[in-house]
Amino acid sequence: MKKFVMDRSGILLIFIGLVIAYELLTDVFGMLDPFLFRGLSMVIPAFGSHFDMLMKGLISSLGLLIPAYVMATFSGISLGVLIGSKKSLRKNITPFINAFSAIPAPLLTPFAIHLFPSFRSASIFIIFIGAFWPTLGTTVNAVMTIDKRYLENAATLEIGEVEKLLRVILPAASPTILSGCTIALKFSFVMLVVAEMFGATSGMGYFVQYYSDFARFDLVIAGFIFMAFILVGIMYLFDIMKVRMLRWTINN
């Protein structure tokens, strides 16, 4: 535990610096608009009073985020490998991938609400879309740029199609695919707030949205900070997984 903290003392120092700077700009010198930028004297109590609600929001948000992200990752990688490894598919489909990935997912909200039977499924769809395109795009690219020598090696060993896919193509492409998954994860967090703007009755995005309508910016800021901590936590777990999977690429 002590080593864990020591290794991250730089992060901790910057964090403390940021907190102090914010406190100086708000409570102490009042240089930022006090109506929007509430000082810590108000934000910290807001955490205390609304902690239950934030936790409840976290659980309900994860209920949208996890299925959406898992589906996006699974379909993005499978389709990406298929498209990336077949030149004819790649040639004919890439323009559409580019076109669709350029549509800002928030604009799809009305369509999603219309097409899906419930708000929940519409929300999942919106997050899914946010995470799907970056995953698909990077996977296609990753598979396309695999070092040809690995595939030749597989050919001289007569490795079958399925085994080649799972044990050669996916691992060879995994560094790029995983960086796409990281981007997709951040995107899905952004989309969470959008997705919870309609129909949701709880959630981290909903919390921020709801109190911003009432101009309760102490709670809005508390909500942002809470989300940031959750995202950092998730990214931390994600990194542990990534390091384990990419152990073969990391130089000692």
Binding site: L157, I159, A172
Partner: peptide
Amino acid sequence: AGLQRGVVFQDYGLFPWMSAGENIMIALKQ
């Protein structure tokens, strides 16, 4: 290409994501 003619490259011969043993085993499996 095929198993009739085994190849040893100057480098890149082994898949870097597999252990040495797995590299040999995947070849034996085919």
